[in-house]
Simulated scan of single mutants.
Amino acid sequence: MTVDSLQMDFETIRAATNDFSDANKLGQGGFGPVYLGRLYNGQEIAVKRLSRDSGQGEMEFKNEALLVAKLQHRNLVRSLGFCLEKEEKLLIYEFVPNKSLDCFIFDSVKRVKLNWEKRYKIIEGIAKGLAYLHHDSRIRIVHRDLKASNVLLDEEMNAKISDFGMARLFVIDQTQAKTSTVVGTYGYMAPEYVMNGTFSTKSDVFSFGVLVLEIISGQKKGQFQNGENEEHVVSAVWKNWTKGTLANIVDPTLMEDAGSRNEIMRCIHIGLLCVQENAEHRPTMASIVPMLSTHSITLPVPSEPSFYIWRSLPGIKSLSSGDQSADGSINQLSVSEQYPR
């Protein structure tokens, strides 16, 4: 597969999107708007038009185009090609009809449509897509910007990870890398990445953990409502985990199905394992997939997450290191009694 074989004609894409009309605009991505298009053969496409001041250069652009074209997995969005003409940089993808996950879970009306069965399928799909990137594709890939708006949902509400503009390829046996330019979304980024630019597959695991807790709570990472205050979802979940009051952080619409309670609590447990401060203590995506599907696997007890990364965020209260609840510590839980009551 070469760059030339993926290149598409600009006029074809312009016609498909009705000259990038507002009526065809699907949304706004990190690097520019996304449009719905229809090719001459009737095929629907999604076109990401990079803004000229997006900061994504030609190298990053070709990186995303070639990278995604080589990836084949049902939980990754499929690339159809790209267009590079003068000032224009376009990425062409399969059209995924139900937009992105954030349009559902952070909308008080739409999230009711996502019962636990659907949310569980989405969590599992994201896990399988990441496991493919980290372990099963021909090249090891770290996404670096996994978040709710970068997970698309198809007509059957299957999750498809998108937006590989920040993705980095690792050579065989490489476990981590370092950058002087930290990119990604604050609140989803692992502490070691924020503090010193070190990233690895475990950085994506951290982002996955935050995303799992958002899916279960139905609240944005930094805007978890705790009475009149807002705090980061990880902080809120940890406080309730130590108190044995996890029902406080679960989206109320999910609590109607008593049969799913243990599965929800297990997913919260997995989410907390993913956001541990020490990257080495976080599970790999290859181990998370069976953790989700095989309930006989005993989960280790998570250690306290790192909260310093969101202390500087305006309006977000944090739980300082070592500030344990008076009602108890996670260390007092036995492994057999997995979920505090």
Rank of each mutant, 00 (worst) to 15 (best):
K243A: 02
I123C: 08
A159N: 12
S100P: 03
S149V: 02
L133D: 10
N196G: 15
V142H: 12
T185H: 07
A131D: 15
W116Q: 06
M157N: 06
S203Q: 11
T175G: 06
N226C: 06
G222W: 01
I141T: 12
G227A: 09
E231G: 02
V234K: 00
F224V: 06
S180D: 02
M166Y: 04
N229A: 15
K128C: 12
T175K: 14
R144C: 01
I216R: 01
V171A: 03
E156T: 12
G227N: 09
A190H: 02
L146F: 03
I139F: 13
I215S: 14
K110A: 06
V142L: 07
A131E: 15
N229R: 13
V237K: 00
G197C: 12
V233L: 00
G165R: 09
E228P: 08
E192Y: 10
S203D: 10
A177V: 00
F206Y: 15
H135R: 13
V151F: 07
N115S: 01
C103D: 08
I105C: 00
V194R: 12
G209M: 07
S137R: 09
H232W: 00
R168E: 08
D163A: 09
G222E: 10
L101C: 07
E117F: 08
Q219G: 10
I161L: 07
